[in-house]
Structures are given as structure tokens and as C-alpha cells.
Design a protein around this nucleic acid. Structure first.
Lengths: 297, 297
DNA sequence: AGCCATTATACCGAACCGGCATCAAAGCCA
DNA sequence: TGGCTTTGATGCCGGTTCGGTATAATGGCT
């Protein structure tokens, strides 16, 4: 199946006539007949009924016509955007991020960015920390907001530290610990813990493990859901104690910083050789806000 | 530009290597180089930087990769749907309609239809009455809900009368006429009238003209907006008297039927030779509701 | 510096695409 | 009803193009 087939089919389906469509496409009619036949063979479906004088669309043909229109239109639009991007007339910023720790500033940041650079289309992709790294290094994302991962200086990637976050214990508001201003790790020994699944953030998971080890005990992990929100649900249900970064927010729970401080960084990451002005501008905006302390309010 | 180019580019951009991509595509590497070069020439834009050992995407290339993924995915999906439609495993109902007079029943009707035939995808297209006819006759729509137009039996189209609507004068609730239960056309002589633009519904427009002519005067038309809603706005602002079909609803206005009755039909229209089960089912549902009086509540 | 891997170029054969000529079928008209 | 016209399908041919092999050029790595 090639675009040629789609374009030819579209012409025939719109004109409801092979010969008229052929004239419109400036090719001979037999070529059209053959192209449509090829499509029908490949799809194993009749697209056009030709019994009568003027052909009619089958239901399948009607579906295809509709989709074809959208696809060709979309392609046209895409190629136009590519050309304009190459000329620097517009840009695209593909931003990958991890949800919870960016919630505090991301929407504000994007609003400001959109105001300053209205011709840049922003594409958001929420992924796991590792996936963000991988996609940035492959050029699928232009910028990532994520956790550091094990071996990352390897590839031509650069990073900027946005914040060091402390870990907190999350407990119900009526829990005996709820009023504490800090909590030693060793108090968690034996408690049922709820922490993020390792595949959703190896850094976070491992930092917690190491916090416990330093305090001299092995954590009793009860659940490892994939979303921070799910951790909070478990805690609210009284299933155990959640361990979350301090940027987490919750109405019904108390967050108590753990001591000694075990932190996990939030970083911005990008490809070293990026000369995309849209990306440069975003990096600069983040640096500006970081200096002014506006990122964290 | 052909799909081949898009597929090839996608492979290269994903692998970030011509030779690896070539292996994945089971073609030789030079063919790939050529195909990408062709694209770059056609677009007048560099997509991939090849200076270093491993190629990198330019901003334009990144935009194209993103769009390519969506387009190819969409195409895949479309072909799958076409195949399934041909086998009768799923269906598509492309329904064209005019907004205001269908508002009373359309959402209820579609809900019921969706419940009875969950495998049918419904595609809605709101258009002008003429456009609905045209699209049905060309097979772009499977069913139309619209006004009759001048010469329509010509094509192989069939119709079903859903309703004869009277015309009403729309006035503010505090207007002297607001309490009347009917209003003779001739009272409108000299009044500033607000009626729908002719291109949005020649039938409606002409029926109003003929109502005035029969009453022996030429209407003083003040505005002809393209939307019924706009007519209501004008009337609320005290700009004049609106003429609308009785199916119009408004909180702030009074609608007074005009006498002698000048009516405009609402019809369902479809292609005579339609054997699409999804369309058949819809027609039957409408007939059923029409008989039971459920269409108009 | 030399080797290896990767991409670009040159050339060639084969496949494919489109054009022409022709055929079969269906409407249109007298 | 029978010829005329129009439309889509089929067969065949020539030219373009697509992909493969061989090879050159380039850059990274040891």
C-alpha cells in the first residue's frame, strides 16, 4: 500500500468515476483501474461497486474514503510543519517528564513558555524516569524532566539539577506520628511500607532501600504500586506507611521528613548537540526561574 | 512523497543508523540513503545530521518522526477498520445533519442507537442543508437529516418526512406581542426582521419570503446571520423580530406561531441502493421512534 | 597511524508503473 | 429494439525507478 493508492482511490471515490478521476489526476484511466484493483486485492475487500453505469462506494469504501481524507490532510499539514521548522519559522518542543514532582511548576512554566514563544508547539509525554532518558538520548524528546539514572553521562546528554528532594513518610492525619516534624528511618523497621514499583523509578526505589539499610534494617515492603496516587490510596486505607518524595501533595495525609536526609534529585536533561532554538529557549527559561526561585514558589 | 519514504525515514530515525535500519527493513543500505536524500530534497530541509559517527535528528527531522508515527499508526488502524467493515464485523454511520431542528432528539437517538449497535462508529457532520444533500448523494454521508432542497428526487435518494415545522416570530418576553398565541404575517410588514442567511438554508429563507409575499408585503430584512443562535442574540438585544422554526428553544424569548401556517419540513435522506446494515438499522430506529412519537417527546 | 564501521556514489538489472490499443458491458436515444 | 456512446477492464509495451553489488570517502577507536 502506497500513498499513490490512497490518492488515486480518493480521486475515484470523490468523483465516483474512474475516467473523470483519471483526468483529474492527469493519468490514463487503465492505470487507475489497476491501482484500485490492487488495493482491493491487498485489503481483501471490495471498495467500489462497478455494476451500474456510475460506480458507488461500498460501506468499506466509504470508511476508507473518510480515513483517507484525514490521513492525507494530516500528512500535508505535517510536511508543511517540517518545512517551517527547518526554516526556523516555527518550532516544536517535545517535553518528557515524570508526573508527581513536576506538578508544582510544570503548568505554570508551560503557560509562561507558551506566552513567550507562541509559534512553538509543545508536545507532552509523561513517562517513567528511565524512559524519559532513553527517549531524550534518541532524540525522540527534546527535553526531559526526570530522576537521574545509573549510567547517564555516557551518552551525549547534559543535565541541570532542579532540586534535591527529601523523602517523607506519609501517614493518615490521625496517626500517632502525624504531628512529628521529622522521623528517623529506623522507626520504619517492621512497619508495612508502600513504595513505588522499581520499574517506575529505580532511583527512588533504591534510595529508600539504602535509607533503610543505613539505618540497619531491611524494609518490610507491603505494596509497590506504579503510581504515587495509588500509594496515597493505600495509606489512606490504613494499609501501611507510604514513602514519597516531599513534592507529593495530599489533603488527607501528613508528610513527615525522614532523618537522616536521604534525597533524590530532579533534573532537566537534554542532548548536548541540540541547536534547536525552541529547546534553547526552554532551557533558558527554566534556568531563569530556577535562579529567581520561581520554580518552587 | 510516498509511504515508502515515510517508513524508511521512520526506521532510520528510530534506529539512528542507516545500516541498522536497512537490516530491519530487509533492504540494502544504499537504497535507504537514497530514499532519505530524496525526502530531504523534496522537503528542502535536512532531516538527519550525518557528520558524526551516528546520525542525529535535526529539529525538522524530530517533527517529522513524531508526525510519521501518528500517520502510519492511523493508516494501519484505518485499513484494519476497512477490512472489518467489509466482513461486516463492524460498521460506520456517517450522519450529516443541520443543528437546531435536530437538537430536540438527536442526542437521545444516538444514545439509543449506540446502545443497540455498539460496534458501529458514528461520525457526525453538521453542515448546511444543501451540503448534507450533496454529501449523501455522493456517498460521503450514509444518512442525512436536513431540509428538502429544490430538485432532489433527481438522484437516487430516498426521503422520509420527520416533521412539518411552523414558523414563529421570536420577540423579547416584554414585547407587546409576547402573550399572543398566534400572529398574522401581515403584522410583520415594516418590522425589522432577522432571518437566517440564504446560504445556510435556502428553503427556510424562501419560505419566509413567500409568507410575506402571500400577506402582501416585502419583508424589511435587517440582518441575515448564519446561525439560529445569532438570530436569538439580535432579538434579545432588541434589534428586531426573529423568524425561526418552532423547534427553536430559548429561555429569554417568546415564540409566536405565524398564521397562515407556513411550514418547512425536516426530512431524513439516504441513498436508494444502500445495503449497509448500520444504515439500515438507523433508518429503522428512526421510523420506529417516529411511529411511537418518541422523536418529538 | 591503521583498522573498522558507517554512509555516499556509481552502475546495473529487474520490477513496476503508466500509456496505448482494444474489448466487454451498460445506459441512452431514436 | 438496435445502434451509438460512454465507461471500466484487459493485454502488451516502453521508460522510469527501485534496489542490489561494488567501491569510495569519512570519521571514530585502539
Amino acid at each position: 500500500m502506497e500513498l499513490r493508492h490512497l490518492r488515486y482511490f480518493q480521486a475515484v471515490a470523490e468523483e465516483l468515476s474512474f475516467s473523470r478521476a483519471a483526468r483529474r489526476l492527469r493519468i490514463a484511466q487503465p492505470a487507475l483501474s489497476r491501482a484500485v484493483q490492487e488495493m482491493e486485492r491487498e485489503l481483501g475487500a471490495q471498495l467500489i461497486e462497478r455494476e451500474r453505469r456510475s460506480p458507488r462506494l461500498t460501506p468499506a469504501g466509504a470508511v476508507l474514503l473518510h480515513e483517507t481524507g484525514l490521513i492525507l490532510e494530516r500528512l500535508d499539514d505535517a510536511l508543511r510543519r517540517v518545512r517551517r521548522t527547518a526554516k526556523g519559522e516555527e518550532g516544536e518542543l517535545r517535553l518528557g517528564y515524570i508526573g508527581p514532582p513536576t506538578r508544582m511548576f510544570l503548568s505554570r512554566l508551560l503557560k509562561e513558555y507558551g506566552k513567550r514563544y507562541p509559534r512553538v508547539t509543545v508536545i507532552l509525554e509523561e513517562r517513567t524516569p528511565e524512559r524519559v532518558w532513553e527517549m531524550v538520548s534518541k532524540g525522540r524528546l527534546s527535553i526531559g524532566l526526570t530522576r537521574p539514572v545509573l549510567a547517564h553521562e555516557v551518552l551525549g546528554l547534559q543535565t541541570l539539577l532542579l532540586r534535591e528532594e527529601k523523602f517523607c513518610a506519609a501517614v493518615p492525619k490521625d496517626h500517632p506520628w502525624a504531628r512529628l516534624t521529622s522521623l528517623p528511618w529506623k522507626k520504619l523497621a517492621g512497619e508495612p511500607l508502600i513504595i513505588l514499583a522499581r520499574r517506575e523509578g529505580a532511583g527512588s526505589h533504591d534510595a529508600i532501600q539504602s535509607g533503610c539499610q543505613t539505618a540497619g534494617f531491611a524494609p518490610r515492603v507491603k505494596h509497590t504500586p506504579s503510581l504515587i496516587g495509588t500509594i496515597l490510596q493505600y495509606v489512606e486505607a490504613g494499609t501501611g506507611i507510604g514513602i514519597v518524595p516531599e513534592s507529593t501533595t495530599s489533603k488527607h495525609l501528613a508528610l513527615i521528613p525522614l532523618k537522616p536526609q536521604q534525597t533524590i534529585p530532579l533534573v532537566m536533561v537534554w542532548a548536548k548537540e541540540g541547536d534547536d532554538p525552541a529547546v534553547l529557549a526552554f532551557r533558558d527559561l527554566v534556568k531563569e526561574w530556577l535562579k529567581a526561585g520561581e520554580l518552587w514558589g
